[in-house]
Design a protein around this nucleic acid. Sequence first.
DNA 1: TATTATAATATACATTTGTATTTTAGTCAA
DNA 2: TTGACTAAAATACAAATGTATATTATAATA
Lengths: 200, 200
Amino acid sequence: MKKELTEKQEKVLEFIRKFHTNNAMMPTVREIAKNFKLSIGSVQQHLRALLSKGFLVKRGSLSRGIDFPNRKTFAQVPVLGTVHAGTFLEQIEDASDYIYINTDVTRNKQCFALKVKGDSMEPSGIVEGDTIVVSKGEMPSSGDIVVALVNNESAVKMFFKEKGKIFLKSTNPKYPTLSSDEYDIDIIGKLIYLVRQYRG
Amino acid sequence: MKKELTEKQEKVLEFIRKFHTNNAMMPTVREIAKNFKLSIGSVQQHLRALLSKGFLVKRGSLSRGIDFPNRKTFAQVPVLGTVHAGTFLEQIEDASDYIYINTDVTRNKQCFALKVKGDSMEPSGIVEGDTIVVSKGEMPSSGDIVVALVNNESAVKMFFKEKGKIFLKSTNPKYPTLSSDEYDIDIIGKLIYLVRQYRG
DNA sequence: TATTATAATATACATTTGTATTTTAGTCAA
DNA sequence: TTGACTAAAATACAAATGTATATTATAATA
């Protein structure tokens, strides 16, 4: 476990966190000093303590060269449209919005995001208004949730493969299961992430 | 609309984006120069072009002082435990993991995250394994989903207020509705965000 | 043709920033 | 009491960084 911090060290770390959140970069020693009306030397000591206790790490002698251990990095994922839009593929060039997700989730896969409409996957916890992140071109296994083009209409369904046939199931029983016998099914990608924002 | 970039300017901007993603800070003029094996002066010119065309902005004469216009900022939200842990409040000091969400969602509210266990909210799209973000101390309105302490056990429920009484409803009908008549109910906060990661 | 934008180099300088050193002082525990 | 840790200040120095200036060259354009 990590060692405990003193009150002052905690405050300095908190300031660094906030600064980083607001400015997308670490503060300089002097920027911290200015905030707390401290001398440079005092801040140096606090930083030294935070480093030795493992709450910060250094990357060389760069400017703004302190870092959080295990800091997450983000991929910018474009929101391309909604899953029942039909014109789905055309909107790919027109990403107006982005969501940002950890790169340990995207893992170098090519991803895009879609807004969900409808209730066909409600029993699996996907409801209208959710934003889903799709990993493009990844081969799904049975039971995975996928985005597919069914006769050129986009849909979110649960994927099943059996005896060479593909089945797309809505977990909401009021919708039928689609099979590759009857429909022209094109798997776009596999669901890897979902975010939902509650209004208010 | 923004003016068009030359091929080289595009490449420089792309490098800056990647550098920012990987290092959570902007590169220095010399770091860009080193990457492209260019002189400092050349990079200065590219930056000047990117600034005048509106693809970058400056914040004073700081080190690493370029920025993206409309850059999103993130709040580091600690994951404090699970919603049925019971020892919920004790774990507050022990944040081992963090999730990062846009500050336009958190809006300066004090937030923390919890892992969901159980199926009591499945019909509203909250399933086991989801991570929910809670805005601490925010007063809920009827219909909002909240995290509450019920006789010192934590729970995710839908909040209702009627005639001075508080009701906590599980959207899954197999669980009873709790009322402030029978239970000691303490509202911790209101749900503002949810993320789900699909394994595979 | 002259002008403008792009692209690149080289160099000098000023400012920002990290780091080292020294000193003072309070608290707490061995 | 001594030692260790924390807290703070003042100062100096070296390294990193931004910025200005001058120069050359090419391509497109009015």
